[in-house]
Amino acid sequence: MTQNQGSGLFLTFEGIDGSGKSSQCRLLAEHLRGLGREVVLTREPGGSEGAEEIRRLVLEGDPDRWSAETEILLFTAARRDHLERTILPALSAGKVVICDRFADSTRMYQGLSRGDLRATVDELHALMIGREPDVTILIDMDPETGLARAKGRQGTEERFEDFGLALQEKMRAGFLALADEFADRFRIVDGARDMDAVAADVVRIVEAELEQRV
Rank of each mutant, 00 (worst) to 15 (best):
G174V: 08
D180M: 08
E181G: 05
F186K: 01
F175Q: 00
R204W: 07
A197E: 15
F186H: 05
R185E: 11
A200S: 13
A192L: 11
F186G: 04
G191I: 07
A192F: 04
L176A: 07
I205M: 02
M195H: 10
A192V: 07
V198S: 10
F175A: 02
D201V: 08
V198Q: 09
M195D: 09
F186V: 10
F182R: 12
F186P: 06
R193M: 11
F175L: 06
A200D: 14
G191S: 07
M195Q: 15
L178H: 04
V203W: 01
L176G: 04
E181K: 13
F186L: 09
V198C: 13
F186T: 09
D194T: 08
V202L: 05
V202S: 04
A179K: 00
E181Y: 05
L176Q: 09
V198L: 11
R193F: 07
R193S: 11
A179Y: 01
R204P: 04
D196I: 13
D196L: 13
F175M: 03
A183S: 15
D196Q: 15
E181M: 09
D190W: 05
A200V: 11
A199H: 10
A177D: 12
I205R: 00
F175V: 10
V198A: 11
L176K: 06
I205N: 01
A199E: 01
A192M: 15
F175W: 07
V202Y: 02
A177C: 06
R185C: 10
F175H: 03
E181T: 12
A179W: 01
D196A: 15
V203T: 15
E181V: 07
D190H: 04
R204F: 08
D201K: 03
A177T: 10
I188T: 14
R193Y: 08
L176E: 06
V203Y: 00
G191P: 15
